[in-house]
């Protein structure tokens, strides 16, 4: 289980969807951190085995947290959430 430190919420809420489910984030969150706080750890399926993968480095190096936004693959740890963003799991579907 994860969540937020109480002091972190001086920011506006931003709503987006992941795999069709509504997710509530804070402005300035990356997709990866908003999803982690929302308990969604599996962000993509691996290339050949199709195993679930999630955040590894959290700083844009490993590409394990790839998701799809508007048809583009993006690193969810480096992409800040926008209201109404439609985020899908990355990799093999």
């Amino acid at each position: 289980m994860s969540g937020r430190l109480t002091d972190a919420d001086g920011r506006e809420r931003v709503e987006f969807t992941f795999e069709g489910d509504a997710v509530s984030a804070y402005a300035g969150d990356t997709i990866a951190m908003a999803l982690w706080a929302a308990q969604a750890a599996a962000l993509r399926r691996s290339s050949s085995a199709g195993e679930p993968r999630g955040v590894l480095c959290n700083m844009g190096v490993c590409y394990e947290c790839l998701v799809t936004v508007d048809g583009h693959n993006v690193r969810s740890c480096m992409t800040v959430v926008r209201a109404g963003m439609v985020v899908e799991r990355g990799g093999r579907q």
């Binding site: 994860s2 969540g3 937020r4 430190l5 002091d7 972190a8 919420d9 969150d29 990356t30 951190m33 982690w36 706080a37 750890a41 599996a42 962000l43 679930p52 993968r53 999630g54 955040v55 590894l56 480095c57 959290n58 700083m59 740890c77």
Partner: peptide, 18 residues
Amino acid sequence: PGVVTAGALQVMVRGFGV
């Protein structure tokens, strides 16, 4: 999922308050 680097945890806590 849930196994991350040490650096990732620091970013999570200090950077995002998660």
